[in-house]
Amino acid sequence: MATFKYIIRDTMRLLTRHFGVVLLTLVTVVAVFLAVGMSILLSVNVASLASQIESDLTVEAYLKDQEARSAVLEKLKNMPEIKEVRYISPEEALKRLDAKIGQGEQIISLLGDNPLPPSVIATVDRAENLSPIAREIEAFPEVEDVIYAGEVAERLASLAYFLNRFAMAVFFVALLTSLVIMMNTIRIALYSRREEIAVMLLVGATPSYVSLPFLLQGVILGGVGALIALFLLLRAYRWLIDVLSRVLPFFTMLDSPDISLWLFCLLVGGGVALGWLCSWTAVYKYVRRALKPR
């Protein structure tokens, strides 16, 4: 009990004695974990968007004019890979746009006419048929342009892959930065108390007794820094979800309590582990050297 009280008291002393350095370390840890959290959120959102789009098995073909409708529909109905075909007139396209972003009438008043072309939406039977069918439709002389989810999904998948790698790079750079800064903070604390540590070891304190306040200091810095970063990150993410749901209503970001929990485990767990590792590395070597007879 006395040891526990000493460790708590001493840890608090360590955290307050060099308050400026401790604060600077805390700010760095917060910044590092913010960067890590942001890159993780960006990466998972892009991956989720890619998989959402990938599951959409439709090809939308924009026609040159309304007269092309029957010819294109006829060709599409004869293709065995296509399960369903639907014609979208320019009026219906405008209604759909209006339903999505609610500015259809403004577009007409601005442009004087409905600018949307007629189109057909074809649903294919399997995902692997999406790209070949889309290319086949694109080759029709009556078709102006083709949009299909697969292409976007492929691009998003490669973006997600890049972002994953980017997140990993951010993670390792951030890890290294916080390792160096936290280790130096612990070293400053050790240096400022070198006489005290030497005397403690000379009167029979065990290395673990001497080390524990420093280890706890590292854990608190890492854990609290990660918690602050998590709080800021979740607030910013919530704000972004609200803003995007108004500005880009068709774009849905991941939004579930699981994300908060997952981020909590990852960031705070990482912060605590990082703090412990830094302190242990700095303290263990120092205390062993101080204890060893010359």
Partner: peptide
């Protein structure tokens, strides 16, 4: 027990604390 030539008293602890920390360091109850 060691009485050092330069005392090695801890300047940020008062007299009672300087003595008490030896006992705390070996885990003696408060």
């Amino acid at each position: 027990g060691v009485v050092f030539q330069d005392f090695k008293l801890l300047p940020h602890l008062n007299a009672a604390e300087n003595v008490a920390f030896v006992l705390e360091a070996i885990g003696m109850p408060g």
